[in-house]
C-alpha cells in the first residue's frame, strides 16, 4: 500500500513538472529557443506571487493572476528587446541570452530579498485531503495542480489546433519565410508565443511556491532541469507526451524518496538518462533529434 501511495503522490507531483514543461516545449517548438532561464523565470513567477501578497496585500488566490500578468509583460519585453535580435544573429545567441538571464535572475532575487524563503501560504487548502481509505489520501492542492496542468496543456493544444492564430503559429514553426510571404509578421507570432509560454510558467511557478509554502532564489537551477527532463522523457513536439513525461518524472522522484530521503533527484535524473539511452525520441515523441 505504501507503494500505491508513492505512485499516487508521484503522479500528483508530476502535474507541476508537466505544466512547467508545456511553455518550454512551446517556445522550442515555434522558435527553436531552448530557454535555459525557464526554471528561473518559474521561480520569478513564484516571487511575483509571494511579494504581491506580502507587500501589496493581494489575496493569495489572486496572486496567480498578478504573477501571470507580470511574467506575461516580461515575456513580451524579453522577446522584443533581446530574443528577436538574438534569433537573427545565430543559433548560439538565444542560448547565450537565456543563460545570461538564468544567471541574473537568482542573484538579483538573492540580493533584493535575501536567501530566506518568501512565504506564500495557502492555509487550510495546503493540508486538506480526500481520504480514499486504506491509508491512501489525495491532497486537494496537488489534485488541483494536476487538474490545472491538464487544463493548461489541453488549452495549448486547442489553441494550436483549433484557432486561426494557433494554426498560423504552427505554420510559423514549420516555415517562417513562407508565413511571412502570406503577410504575417513573424515577430508578432514570436512575441505571442513567448508571452503564452511565460504566462504558463508563471502559473507553474506560483503553484510550485504554494506547494512548498514559499520560494528561495536558487531553486530555478533544479526546476529548469525538471522541465527539460519532462520534455525529453515525454518526447519533443507532443503536449500529451509532456504530461506523461511530468508524471513519469514525478513518480520516479517519489519512488526515489521512498527508498531513501537523499535519492529523489538521482532517481529522476537516472530515469531521464535511461529514456535517452533506450528511447531517445521520448515516450510519445516523434524525435528528440529534431
Amino acid at each position: 500500500m505504501t507503494w500505491v501511495n508513492t505512485i499516487l503522490q508521484g503522479l500528483l507531483l508530476g502535474g507541476i513538472f508537466a505544466m512547467a514543461a508545456g511553455g518550454l516545449s512551446l517556445m522550442f517548438g515555434v522558435m527553436r529557443i531552448a530557454n535555459l532561464a525557464h526554471g528561473d523565470l518559474m521561480i520569478l513567477g513564484g516571487y511575483a506571487a509571494a511579494v504581491s501578497t506580502l507587500h501589496l496585500g493581494v489575496p493569495v488566490p489572486l496572486t496567480v493572476l498578478v504573477s501571470m500578468a507580470v511574467l506575461g509583460g516580461l515575456g513580451y519585453l524579453l522577446q522584443r528587446t533581446l530574443l528577436d535580435r538574438a534569433m537573427a544573429l545565430s543559433e548560439l545567441a538565444p542560448m547565450m541570452v537565456t543563460f545570461g538571464i538564468a544567471v541574473m535572475i537568482p542573484n538579483a532575487l538573492a540580493e533584493v530579498f535575501s536567501n530566506d524563503a518568501q512565504p506564500l501560504n495557502i492555509g487550510a487548502l495546503g493540508t486538506a485531503s480526500i481520504e480514499l481509505g486504506g491509508g491512501l489520501a489525495i491532497g486537494w492542492f496537488p489534485l488541483l495542480t494536476v487538474v490545472a496542468a491538464v487544463l493548461v496543456l489541453t488549452g495549448l493544444h486547442l489553441f494550436l489546433h483549433r484557432t486561426q492564430i494557433g494554426r498560423i503559429t504552427r505554420a510559423t514553426a514549420d516555415d517562417p519565410e513562407v508565413v511571412r510571404l502570406m503577410g504575417v509578421d513573424n515577430l508578432k507570432i514570436y512575441a505571442l508565443t513567448t508571452v503564452i509560454s511565460l504566462v504558463t510558467v508563471a502559473l507553474a511557478g506560483t503553484l510550485y511556491a504554494m506547494r512548498q509554502g514559499g520560494v528561495t532564489p536558487y531553486e530555478g537551477q533544479l526546476t529548469v532541469l525538471f522541465a527539460f527532463e519532462t520534455v525529453v522523457i515525454g518526447g519533443l513536439g507532443s503536449l500529451w507526451g509532456t504530461l506523461a513525461g511530468g508524471l513519469v518524472l514525478g513518480v520516479a522522484q517519489s519512488a526515489g524518496a521512498q527508498i531513501s530521503p537523499d535519492l529523489p533527484l538521482l532517481a529522476g535524473h537516472v530515469v531521464f538518462l535511461l529514456v535517452l539511452v533506450f528511447r531517445p525520441q521520448g515516450l510519445f515523441g516523434r524525435s528528440v533529434l529534431a
Binding site: H269, L273, P280
Partner: peptide
C-alpha cells in the same frame, strides 16, 4: 549519452550528467 541530444537540449543534458 550526451550526443543523443542537440543544441539547447544537449546543454541541459550535460548539466544533468554533471548532477548525476
Amino acid at each position: 549519452l550526451a550526443f543523443r541530444l542537440r543544441g539547447g537540449y544537449f546543454a541541459v543534458g550535460t548539466w544533468v550528467i554533471a548532477e548525476v
